[in-house]
Structure formats: structure tokens, C-alpha cells
Amino acid sequence: MRTDSSEGRRTDFPLLYAAATLCLIITVAPFAWMFLSSIKPTSEILKMPPVWLPSTITFEHYRRLWSSAFASSMVNSAVVSISITLTTILVNSMAGFAFAKYRFPGRERLFTLLLATMMIPGQVTMIPVFILLKYLGLLNSYTGLVLPGTASVFAIFLMRQFMMGIPDSVLEAARLDGASEPRLFAQIVLPLAMPAIATLVIFTFMASWNEFLWALIIMLDESKYTVPVALAALNGQYGTDWGLLMAGSVVTILPVLGVFLLMQKHYIRGIATSGLKG
């Protein structure tokens, strides 16, 4: 009797598994190299032929990183990214809810128009926005960094699509139960939209944490640099401190990884088990 066991499957596709393993190695290798380099003595980093494992493990690079301006850029980035993520969630989930559940004249046309703006690359609007922020006196400020990214068409689209799946009757039941619209949004819609929110948190946090160009343009004081800008600054004009750069890179990845691990439960669960259907 033939059984469809997992053992059988593994031996069925040896090539597939070999290819998958190869892909895994290609993906993970740079990260492994980065991490290992960050704990190697400087002399071993550029040694030829290359050595993977350090002869002695050192945290020297991390110590230097911590005492440099990079530490304060971590704080800057945290403040900026958390602000962007929170405002993005709030603003766009409200917009998405309106597009998904309120009937108003021109709703579809307005939404199409919003979607159309996704075709305009960010670089095109960068200079006009820069000039606008200059007039508003928001250059070299966190507000100037956070504000332009707050309303995101992608985020509105994501929230709208998800919220369209929330049955109208649930909202109507809440209205009949006496909920006002803000309360309905906060107590019924947002909890039900958790999978979409988790997805958006991951995307937004990652994007804002890694944002380089805009942060470089708008922030003039070194004390206000965010992590990607500070990281780039480690890459000196005449020479690069590779140990420091690798240590900085490792530290940069950690918060993003943390957010993903925190949110993945909701992210993966999705709508499948949210129990909306009868």
C-alpha cells in the first residue's frame, strides 16, 4: 500500500530540495557574512583568501558603534518609524474604511484617481514636496520626515480591500446597539482588520526604517540623521571601517526583524480564521 507520507514526498523530489537548499544558502550567506564580519578582528575582514569564521570573537566594533553618533540615530529612527507607522495606520485605515463602507457620490471615481497616482514615481514629487516643506518651515524636522509619508495610496488600497470583506450587517448591528461611528471604527472595524493592520505595520515600518533618500535630503543636522543615513556616513570618502559598517548593518536589521516576528501571527493567519462567515 502506498502512503502519501512526508517521507515519501521528500524522496520524490530530490532536485527540488537541492534547488531550494541552494536558494537558501544564496539568500542567507550575505547575512551570515555580515554578522560574522561584525565580530571579527579588523585584520581578518579583508583577509585573502577570505575566512568565514573569526579566529577570536570580538565585540569591539559594537562598542565603537555604541559610542559614536550611530546610537543617537537609532533613537531618531525609532521615533520617526514608530510615528510614521502609527499615523499611517490611523489615517489610511480611516480612509480605507470610508472607501469600503460609506456610500458617497464620486466614491469610485475618487478611488480610481487615487490608484492612478501610484503610477507617479516618488522621485518626481520629491522636489515639489521639498519646496512645500521649506515654505512650511518643516525642513530639518521630524515632522517633515513623517508628514509626507502619512497618506499612502497603497495602504488605503490594502485597508479598503480588507474592510470590504467585513459584513455590513456586523456594522449595522453595532449601530443598532448604539455605537457612534468613531466607536464603531475603533471597537469593531479596527479589531476585525487586525490581519491587514499587521501587514501594513510590517510594510510601513520596514519602509520607513530603511528610508534613505528622503531622510538624507531633509535632515541637515548630523544629530538628526536616521539609521540608513548614519550607516551611509560610516562609509567614508577615503576609506571604510568595514567592521563598524557590518556591526551597524546588523543592528539596523534587528528592529525590522523584531516587528516582523511580533506581527507575523496576525499576518499569516489572515482572514481565513477570523470567523466572519456564518
Binding site: P167, S169, V170, E172, A174, S274
Partner: peptide, 9 residues
Amino acid sequence: FQDYALYPH
């Protein structure tokens, strides 16, 4: 309601 419209959460 026909589909009960309970709050799933």
C-alpha cells in the same frame, strides 16, 4: 440578522 452579524472578536 440573517447572517447573525455577531462580533467575531
